[in-house]
Write a protein that binds this DNA or RNA. Structure first.
Lengths: 231, 231
DNA sequence: CAGTACCGTGTGGTCCGACCACACCGGTAG
DNA sequence: CTACCGGTGTGGTCGGACCACACGGTACTG
């Protein structure tokens, strides 16, 4: 058992037992080291891992906002882990696209069929689409808004795990999407098509037609990757 | 920019550029520190993060197996991240179950409908189910085999991301399942029911009936969590 | 008395140097 | 030729030190 794992165990146990809650501060690195009878570097390595997992956020200085604060940010670690593994080329892009289709189809079907879908959230999504109608929108900005649209869509289903995974997938592949964008021969026309498809998906959700929404979102995603030749 | 992030960037760039490949060794901690003009502790923190992400595996000693080796193990980091966030109680168990149903339903449907489903994999799954028929099987062992069965099912679909997420979900909640198992009033009868349902799911996959397989696996998962009262 | 500038204090961030346990590998003794 | 055994390089751990920073109370100023 490595020393820093001891620290991790301790923190996880404290979390599970409710001794540490969201917003609480971890004991200082020196205090934790003394308490567990390990060195400060070992504690630091553990804190780094927790930070990489999105469990704590660290800040220097003094006062309530300084130190290692317990947060719940599962998205960023998933994103960086996916990005790293994409970089190793042992995670085929096709599998990521397939997973996106799977999760987003389910999410829009779920959102369309539940009666209590958040009206404010729908309104926010409409505003996103309006922003994408802006002429002369830089490509980068378009793709960022596109990503926000898809994540917002997935969030409608009300499952934090699904929307977190969706957000991570989208962020992790953002760079690859941007690299592939020049492959589209006629960008203005392609963007127009994407806008139309977005509206169509949203319309199906609002109409409560889950099957149609799922079908449209799947075709939308697969169509884009095929056209852009992302691989 | 924190110093250890510099090291992370360097490694990710090397991976993306193909200068580091699976099985390669990272330069030694001292060498890396000298090369990037940072201290060894900073390098160590970065290596820890990479290890936590499942990108490298470290070992002491000398020779080809020592040092930090590039691996592709996306499952373990997902597992521990999920476990940690589960412990923070900001990741409802219900959402995890829902996600499992979503992904496993898709996986068995996919497996049932593709012609080239691996016969060896199916045979391995049958052996798993045979092992679960063993009388006097300890509960812990039963649940481990159960988990292996579900992960193997998900792997049939041939999507590494889906099977990885499935494996992580299953592992992350294993402890909670074990804690909840005593809630089942009549364990032998419950185990018998689970065995029957497993066989039925596999039969539907082998028969090529995707809809039936998806329906059965969804009912199986939801039924268990409802009966055991996991929350 | 009110406002402001200032410095003490505790935090994480970074670094250095040292020693340990371990696994391999090559030289050496049998 | 074989078996032993130390050399060597690896990550693992430690203690201590200094830095930059942010807060918070205090002392000074008006």
């Amino acid at each position: 058992m490595k020393t820093y794992e001891l620290v991790l165990q301790r923190v996880e146990a404290d979390l599970a037992a409710g001794r540490l809650r969201l917003g609480d501060r971890l004991p200082g690195e020196r205090a934790l080291a003394a308490e567990l009878e390990v060195s400060r570097p070992s504690v630091r390595e553990a804190v780094r891992v927790l930070e990489a997992m999105g469990v704590v956020r660290t800040a220097v200085g003094s006062g309530p906002q300084a130190g290692a604060i317990i947060v719940a940010e599962p998205s960023s670690p998933l994103t960086s882990t996916l990005r790293l593994h994409l970089a190793t080329r042992h995670l085929p892009m096709g599998h990521i696209v397939q997973t996106r289709v799977l999760m987003e189809s389910w999410a829009v079907r779920e959102a369309a069929e539940r009666a209590d879908t958040d009206a404010d959230a729908l309104e926010a999504i409409r505003r996103l689409l309006d922003a994408m109608d802006e002429p002369d929108l830089p490509r980068e900005r378009f793709h960022v808004l596109d990503a926000e649209f898809h994540v917002a869509l997935a969030t409608l289903a009300g499952n934090v795990l699904v929307s977190t995974i969706m957000a991570s997938l989208r962020e992790a592949i953002h760079g690859y999407v941007m690299d592939a964008a020049p492959n589209l021969p006629d960008w203005p026309a392609a963007a127009e098509g994407l806008r139309r498809e977005h509206r169509a998906v949203l319309a199906a959700v609002e109409a409560g037609d889950g099957d149609l929404a799922a079908e449209r979102v799947a075709a939308h995603i697969e169509g884009f990757y095929q056209a852009a030749g992302v691989r």
